[in-house]
Amino acid sequence: IRCIGVSNRDFVEGMSGGTWVDVVLEHGGCVTVMAQDKPTVDIELVTTTVSNMAEVRSYCYEASISDMASDSRCPTQGEAYLDKQSDTQYVCKRTLVDRGWGNGCGLFGKGSLVTCAKFTCSKKMTGKSIQPENLEYRIMLSVHGSQHSGMIVNDTGYETDENRAKVEVTPNSPRAEATLGGFGSLGLDCEPRTGLDFSDLYYLTMNNKHWLVHKEWFHDIPLPWHAGADTGTPHWNNKEALVEFKDAHAKRQTVVVLGSQEGAVHTALAGALEAEMDGAKGKLFSGHLKCRLKMDKLRLKGVSYSLCTAAFTFTKVPAETLHGTVTVEVQYAGTDGPCKIPVQMAVDMQTLTPVGRLITANPVITESTENSKMMLELDPPFGDSYIVIGVGDKKITHHWHRSGSTIGKAFEATVRGAKRMAVLGDTAWDFGSVGGVFNSLGKGIHQIFGAAFKSLFGGMSWFSQILIGTLLVWLGLNTKNGSISLTCLALGGVMIFLSTAVSA
């Protein structure tokens, strides 16, 4: 259960009878995928790494000078000259100064003066180019299975845990398959586009800190620079940016070097996208990844198990997540596992009318040892309800109150669905055939309105939902006002479609 501690969480529900669903994975976010007769899966884009970055340009932001020398000439005696002028490691300046009897010249006039100092770069920052084909995306998957609280967001041991898996995709191999043991396998067909235009970005490294910066900004930095990788004795261009020549006297000129420019660069980098280094690879934390999940090989585990009949206890007080759902960790005293956990939410304890829904599909106890633990997640209705676990006299209950409203949740879900469709863009549509167009249209309606429909009408039977949709269509056909007619027709059509397409 990876997503319960992530604030940016998206719930995606598969269409009834569908074998695939489109998701948008982004750094700092987590996606929970639910479908009829399929286990619930949490998917998170953990890291995006980039390798084989080529150094484009380096800037010196802290330097020192040494070996200063000057040469001067009297008027009419030609130009002052130093051998160091031809050495690229030196920074030199030529000027004219007033000369006369007082400073060793027989004539009054302008004399030539040249001053040089050896330039040494102490600290530099480097910009590297990123090729999209060198990106690698690491995705962690977790099935809502027989897990306890100690396994949440624990990325170790996934090789031997059938509840978890790690997959890596690249532009050259965008397809992967996550093996989930008894739950089958989940196929991923990803489109490795981060949403960032790397043709316009460089990877900047300064003092063990890293950013993504725009090329134009990078090339306009007014500091000494050299092109390409460091060859040991780089040729620094624009050395004068960190060196200041003071007022010249008759035979000498003082040279000083400016202080470190790291603070000024940090100020200019305010708002830039931060990154990290992992050995020789860069780690990015921006952008998104679009994936199509193929769920035809994914299956529920323990459908044929019998119900657990022994007593359950709450190991922890049920807690609310950031998303309005409830996490419950229970301990089973029996030894008759594997068995299914009898769990439901009810409005009252007399009729036990089921409300809400299970995020953890078909929760089971897989071990036959005593005191096995299991964590599950529920989506309670707004208002008061009861969490009921167990059967008969051994069942345990917990009162729950959820604040908020169904309308607010439906609106929030619609906005999130619209954002998801905007990110998917043209990849969500198939114009290759008439059937493809209608299929894409259905998927689009489901992406945007599916979660809201589930919130508003999830407790009704599909037949009642179709009746309401048919009534809206009838009202649309018999209303003389054009805008009201079109609105009723659209709402009725969407409702009829979703009542037959969205899983219960």
Rank of each mutant, 00 (worst) to 15 (best):
75 P>R: 01
141 L>I: 09
370 E>A: 08
291 C>K: 06
242 L>P: 01
125 M>C: 11
281 K>D: 15
259 G>V: 00
149 S>G: 12
93 K>Y: 07
489 L>V: 15
326 V>A: 15
411 F>K: 11
436 G>C: 00
131 Q>R: 09
222 P>G: 05
336 D>C: 12
341 I>D: 10
234 P>T: 11
308 C>L: 03
425 G>P: 03
218 F>V: 10
57 R>G: 13
471 L>A: 08
268 A>T: 13
337 G>K: 12
187 G>I: 05
225 W>V: 03
172 N>G: 01
138 R>C: 02
324 G>R: 10
369 T>L: 09
353 T>W: 00
264 A>Y: 09
61 Y>I: 10
286 S>N: 02
341 I>R: 02
314 F>G: 00
455 S>C: 13
17 G>W: 07
498 L>A: 02
325 T>R: 03
58 S>T: 14
126 T>L: 12
464 S>Y: 10
136 E>N: 04
287 G>V: 15
347 V>T: 11
95 T>G: 05
274 E>G: 05
175 R>P: 06
287 G>Y: 00
400 W>F: 12
80 A>T: 08
457 F>K: 12
61 Y>F: 14
462 W>H: 11
462 W>Y: 14
67 D>H: 12
213 V>P: 04
275 A>Q: 01
111 G>P: 01
232 G>Y: 04
129 S>Y: 01
36 Q>E: 14
248 A>T: 09
306 S>N: 15
494 V>Y: 12
84 K>D: 03
54 A>P: 03
151 M>T: 07
503 S>G: 04
397 T>N: 14
269 L>K: 11
177 E>A: 08
97 V>L: 04
256 V>L: 00
257 V>R: 00
289 L>M: 13
90 Y>L: 07
89 Q>D: 12
95 T>F: 05
458 G>F: 12
80 A>I: 12
312 F>P: 03
490 A>K: 13
299 R>I: 07
107 L>H: 07
300 L>T: 01
218 F>A: 04
300 L>F: 02
374 M>W: 03
310 A>N: 05
488 C>P: 00
364 V>C: 15
259 G>N: 09
148 H>I: 08
278 D>G: 11
93 K>S: 03
338 P>H: 02
221 I>G: 01
263 G>E: 12
461 S>C: 09
62 E>V: 09
165 A>K: 12
462 W>R: 14
190 C>V: 05
459 G>S: 09
453 F>T: 13
11 F>E: 08
307 L>T: 09
285 F>A: 04
165 A>D: 10
481 N>T: 07
53 M>L: 15
207 N>M: 12
403 S>Q: 00
276 E>M: 14
13 E>I: 07
86 S>E: 09
332 Y>T: 07
479 T>N: 09
162 E>R: 04
463 F>E: 03
137 Y>E: 04
326 V>C: 08
131 Q>K: 10
321 T>W: 11
224 P>E: 10
161 D>I: 01
153 V>G: 04
74 C>M: 11
467 L>F: 12
413 A>I: 01
28 G>K: 02
214 H>F: 09
401 H>M: 12
473 V>A: 12
203 Y>M: 11
123 K>D: 05
483 S>C: 15
449 F>Y: 11
61 Y>V: 13
103 N>W: 09
320 E>Y: 02
161 D>K: 00
150 G>V: 00
173 S>L: 12
290 K>N: 05
407 I>A: 04
291 C>A: 02
485 S>L: 02
115 T>N: 06
283 K>E: 15
135 L>E: 04
202 Y>F: 12
395 K>M: 14
241 A>D: 05
251 K>C: 04
427 T>S: 14
212 L>V: 13
192 P>F: 04
235 H>E: 01
265 V>F: 07
229 A>N: 02
120 T>V: 13
79 E>N: 10
469 G>W: 06
19 T>L: 01
9 R>W: 11
325 T>S: 15
402 R>L: 01
84 K>H: 14
195 G>E: 03
460 M>K: 06
355 V>C: 07
269 L>A: 09
474 W>R: 04
236 W>E: 04
453 F>A: 05
235 H>C: 02
132 P>W: 03
351 T>L: 14
20 W>L: 00
250 A>W: 10
109 G>Q: 06
340 K>V: 02
308 C>G: 06
397 T>L: 14
391 V>M: 14
323 H>V: 03
41 V>L: 14
259 G>D: 08
84 K>F: 08
456 L>C: 08
318 P>E: 04
258 L>M: 15
35 A>F: 07
470 T>V: 15
308 C>N: 08
42 D>W: 10
504 A>M: 12
369 T>Y: 03
221 I>M: 15
169 V>N: 07
439 N>H: 13
155 D>A: 13
164 R>E: 12
385 S>E: 11
155 D>E: 11
412 E>G: 12
172 N>C: 09
49 T>A: 05
229 A>T: 13
243 V>A: 10
386 Y>C: 14
284 L>N: 07
3 C>S: 07
211 W>M: 11
120 T>R: 14
419 K>C: 12
429 W>N: 09
379 D>H: 05
180 L>G: 04
178 A>W: 09
367 E>H: 03
498 L>G: 02
82 L>N: 05
116 C>K: 06
36 Q>T: 13
228 G>R: 10
351 T>R: 15
96 L>P: 02
137 Y>H: 12
22 D>M: 10
358 L>K: 05
247 D>S: 06
354 P>C: 00
263 G>P: 08
271 G>W: 08
435 G>Y: 14
4 I>F: 09
339 C>T: 05
159 E>C: 01
95 T>S: 13
92 C>D: 09
116 C>H: 11
469 G>I: 09
194 T>D: 00
26 E>I: 04
113 L>R: 00
309 T>Q: 06
301 K>Y: 13
485 S>I: 08
168 E>C: 02
47 T>H: 13
211 W>C: 09
49 T>F: 01
360 T>A: 11
